[in-house]
Each structure stands twice: as structure tokens, then as C-alpha cells.
Design a protein around this nucleic acid. Sequence first.
DNA 1: TATGAATGAGCTTTCATTCAT
DNA 2: TATGAATGAAAGCTCATTCAT
Lengths: 188, 188, 188, 188
Amino acid sequence: MRTKDETKAQDILQATLDEVRDVGLAGLSVEAVARRAGVATGTVYVYFKGKDALLDQLYLRTKQKFATQVLRDDGGPIRAAFTRMTIAYVDYVIENAAELVFMSQMANSPYLTAETREQAAIGLRPLAALLERGKAEHLLKDIDTGWMATFLYETVKSMAPLARGLPPERYREFQETVATLCWDALKA
Amino acid sequence: MRTKDETKAQDILQATLDEVRDVGLAGLSVEAVARRAGVATGTVYVYFKGKDALLDQLYLRTKQKFATQVLRDDGGPIRAAFTRMTIAYVDYVIENAAELVFMSQMANSPYLTAETREQAAIGLRPLAALLERGKAEHLLKDIDTGWMATFLYETVKSMAPLARGLPPERYREFQETVATLCWDALKA
Amino acid sequence: MRTKDETKAQDILQATLDEVRDVGLAGLSVEAVARRAGVATGTVYVYFKGKDALLDQLYLRTKQKFATQVLRDDGGPIRAAFTRMTIAYVDYVIENAAELVFMSQMANSPYLTAETREQAAIGLRPLAALLERGKAEHLLKDIDTGWMATFLYETVKSMAPLARGLPPERYREFQETVATLCWDALKA
Amino acid sequence: MRTKDETKAQDILQATLDEVRDVGLAGLSVEAVARRAGVATGTVYVYFKGKDALLDQLYLRTKQKFATQVLRDDGGPIRAAFTRMTIAYVDYVIENAAELVFMSQMANSPYLTAETREQAAIGLRPLAALLERGKAEHLLKDIDTGWMATFLYETVKSMAPLARGLPPERYREFQETVATLCWDALKA
DNA sequence: TATGAATGAGCTTTCATTCAT
DNA sequence: TATGAATGAAAGCTCATTCAT
């Protein structure tokens, strides 16, 4: 008997990401996903319970991957950690355009479970921790941590697409600019 | 012969907005829009060429309404104009939640025409003008105006939802915090 | 605007009956029903909520039509009413073969609602009433009316198909035989 | 190499019977049958050529088992043999509810081969023989044997389900009533 | 203009069957 | 033989759009 192939699940998830980027969440069809992933339509249902479950799982994985890759506090000096995070964030957005489109399309869609929404929020904790540390050291403004986290998280995400297509040195400049803007905004 | 009734077109547009807020762009059906607007399905096609055209037009109107209501530079002192704009922006987001959901859902969808996207960008000009003025007066950082405009536009939009449900004094505090963050970020 | 056409609903119901006769309940597809009725697939859903509802409604109508046409007690002498009913029953089965196949296929299917089953049972009341009358007049055996009703109802239904294809005089003979068998079985 | 296991074939047939009782012929899926039988889907195809063949074979076996168990003429006095048969029949129906549902669902379905239908009819011969014997002894009416056989076969089958849930003494009473009704119907 | 019945393409999903192991 | 992953052809149903009224 053929054994379940985790690669295939990955292929399907990636195909979904690419399809949403190309035709949007509203235009997404399971058949197109399957074709793109190089499997039969029915195979999607071997790995995922249905379209909803597929999208839900993909959302969670994407959020988690992002959190793991970007939102890390290495415990070093605040300013350095802050800058490093911002720069990694911009890189992530540029390198994972499809992921970002997908997350924004899912945000207000009926596909998203309340539970998944909660789960996804957990990934933001390291960011909050970093900001708390900064507040404790009086390097950052003494305002609601949730507000600051949202500021940072959303601002970088929204600005990052501007970096697309920039030549290397301008790209570097852009990253530093973003880091500066955010730091100036939050610093005490 | 009954004449085309502008009220009806408005009803349909508003119903679309409300539907998208409730079921998302992916769950939107013309029939549900018609029912919500209190007209027959066919009537939607009397006022709009099709679903795509309806969404496209609604996007444009929404963007323009927003620009007119929020992104105005009254020519006064930079800092004051800046703060006034930020505060009006938060108010707008809170009072027009459906509009915001709609715009974010449309942003990366295939429904959006390149042309409409351009048209919509025009509304940002007053914002750019304000920032240029601030740069000329050396009150703001000397960085790319487009970058700054995006920063301001996206940051306030992303943060504003946090204000939902806040008691009046906290709401006021929130608005001021947002204005401060943005000013500190951009000021020279 | 086109107005809802009750004829169309009838066509769909009849087409369903014919399809079930030809391909069985398990082989029934909405598309085939629509094609047979001369309407588009979607039209079926204009008149019926879904396949289940279509079958459920059809079952009820069929049972009721049968009850109205066959299970009537005209109040005359028991034996005569009894015989008349039996003969009408055989005629009905022969003339409405598709209906009978449909009812037998539905009987143990998951399509049948408990509620519909109850509703359908109501049609048997006139039969029970006739039997009660016979028992009161001591012309029939004094056994459970429900048992007698089931006996009569099921026996004639099961035997009737034997009449198919019989030449007229044999057909008449068959009807009388069935009437005699049933009468002899139940008479005191 | 493991050898074909007759137990497994039996399990699959029994599982099919139970599934049809629970979800009907229209709701039957090979996967559900396999799961219920405790084997893999593919295994069903080791023992049966396909779904159709499975149902066809099951139908034949069921009919034959029934014929062997119920429709036997032990050669004793007509009336006694007749009564014994009727009583055994009721018992069979009560004890093998799933079989009966299955046979009724198959009766008018496209799954049934003409050949199988013929094969199944052979089982009715002992019943016909008994009736012939009764006619020869002038104990039974002189009418078409096929008609009488159908009468007996169908009537008992249709009435038997009424016995379900009856307390023992009522159950006994019911069996005798059925035997009496049938005898009175057919006796000369 | 306004209606909503009618359409049929296309959607998600199921499922009989095959096949690699 | 036994498995269950993989397949793809339908199935039921929805919905953007058209059209008769």
C-alpha cells in the first residue's frame, strides 16, 4: 500500500497559497489547487477534510511560520533586537508575498474560525515580550503593550511591499528607514 | 415609465458593504445583496453591469468618500493638521467598519481593476501634499514622500480597530497616542 | 416577470417518478430528472428545496393521491364496498406502476422523514373505518383493525403486479380472485 | 501467502446487510461496508468483483437462505405444513430484519440482474409444490398456483413486521392470526 | 424600470475502483 | 492476500446572469 506522503500535503498547501495570490480567495477552487499541486481533486480530500479545513490549517501554519521566522527576541540589547526584527520582517514579506496576500484575504473571511484566530494570536507573544522589556528599561514609551505590538506588526507589514523591486542599496535603505520610523515612534 | 432611482443604487451599494462585512467577499452573492437592499435580483443589473462592476464602483466611491472626509489638508500648521487628520481617521474607521473590511478584502482580490487602483491612489494626494509641506518646513524627516504617506495611511488604518469598544476617555487617549506615535515616527 | 408555473412542478414530480421506475432510487440523479422534465437543473431547485425535499414531497403526494382514489368507503354494504375497493386498487396499481415502484423504494430509504411517514399513514384511515364497520356488523373477524388494514393494503399491492399483461377477461378474473381471497381471509 | 478467507467474505456480506438496513441502498458506500466489516476498502474487491456483484451475490444468498429456512414442505398434512411455514416465516422476518429490508430495496433496483431474479424465483418452488398438493387434495381453492404463491409469500412478508416488539403471548397470537387469515383465504 | 423565474456553468464533495506496496 | 492512498468521474447544489412579463 502507498503510505501517506507529507510532501503531498505540503504541495497542496503551497498550491493553495499560489492560487490565492493569483485569483484571490473568492476565486479559489479546489480543482485548481489540485491541478497546481499535481494531484487529483480527490487527493486534496485525503489530506484535508474540506476546503474550509484546508484554508484554516494553512492560515495557522502560515502565521506560525511567520512568527517563528520573524518575531524572535534573542535577548540582546533592545534597539538591536528591534532593528533585527524589523529587517527580518521586511525580508519575510518580500520573500513570501503569497503568504501575505493569503493572510490579508483570510483576515475578514468566513473561512476563519474563532479558535484559529486565537491560536494565531499566540505567535505575537514574543513581540509583546520584547516591548515589555523595552518598557521596563525605560527605552520605550509607557503605553499599552497591545497597542504598540499592533503598531509594529501592522506598520511593517503594510510598508514592506514598497520594497518590492527596489535595487539592493535602496532596499537596504528602505529597511533602515522602516526600522527608524518604528523606533522613533515607540522610543521614550 | 419609472425613472432610474438613485436611492436604489445607494441601497444596493450599502447592502453590498454590509454583506461583505458579514460574510466576506468570498461569501458574497448578488441575490443576498438584492434581498438586503430590498430589491429584486434583476434590479441590481439595471443599476450595475454585473457583480464585478458593482464591486469596482463601490471600491472607488468608498475610497473617494474616505479621502474627502479624512485626507484633507486645511493649510494650517503642520503639526495641527497632522493631528487633526489622524484623529479624523480613527473616527472614520470606527464609524465605517464595513467600509474598511470591504476595502481590505478588495485590496488583493482579482475584482479590482488596475485602472480603479490608480484612480483610488489619486485620493492620497492631499496626504502627500501635507507631507511635502512638512518636509519643506524641515519639520518632517527627509525621506521618500510615498513611503511616508504609506506609513501614515496604513498605520492609522491598522491601529484604529483597537479603539472599538473603548470608553470615551480611553478612546480620546487612544487617538492621541496614535497621533503621537505617527508624529514621532515622521518628525525630523 | 415570469410567474411560477405549477405545471412545471408537476412535470418535475412526474419525471422523478419515471426516473425512479427506470433506474431506481439509488440511480436517481437530479440532472436526469431535470432533463426528463424538460427544464434546467437549477429549475428543480426553484420548485424544491433539494433532492430530499423533492422525494419527500413526491412520496406524500403519491400516497395521498392513492388514498383519495382507492381507499374510499362509500358507505354501502360492506361486501360491495370491500370488493369495489379491491378492484379499484388493482386498477390503480396497473395504471400507476411507476408510483408503486417509487413508494416501495422509498419505504426503507433514508430519504423518508418520520413526519412524512406519519402524514402518509393518515390516508389509511378510511380503510380502517370500513373494517371497523364490518367488525361492528359481525361480518368480519374480530381481530386487530391495524392488522387487518395492513393485510388488505399490502396483499392487494403485492398481488396486483401479477395482473400486468393479462388479457381483459383474465384481468377481470384476477381482480375477482384477489377480492375473494381477501374477503375469505377477513370474513367472520 | 495468506489464502482467501471465507470468513472475510461473510463479514463483508453481513456488513452490507447491516449498512443497507441503516442507510438504505441509496446511501450505501463500499468504504462504509469495508469499515463495518473490519477490512480495508481494497479487500472488498479481492472477494467481490465490484459493488454490483457484491449486491447481486448477497441478494441470491439471502433469498436462498430464506427459502431453505422457511419455504420447506415436510410432506405432512397440508394444513399443518401450511401453518408451520407461516409461523416460521414470521419468525424469520423478525429475526432477520436487515435481510428483509435489503431484499425489498433490491427488488426494484437496477442492481438486480435478470438472471439473478430468475435464480431467486427457484426458491419459491417448494411453496408452489405445497400449494399444488393442497389443490390436488381439494383442500385449497382451484386458482392459479402462481397467484396463490405470490399471495402467501407477499402477505406474510408484509404483515410480519407488525409483530415487532409484541410481548410473547401477543406474538404467538399474531402468528396464529396470520396463519388463519392466509388459510381462510386459500382454503377451498 | 422592475421583477423573479429560469438557466447552465461551475463549484465542493463523494465514492467506486485501481494500484503501489 | 491485504492495505489504504490515489484517482477522476459523477453527484448535489449554488449563483451570476438573462429574459419573459
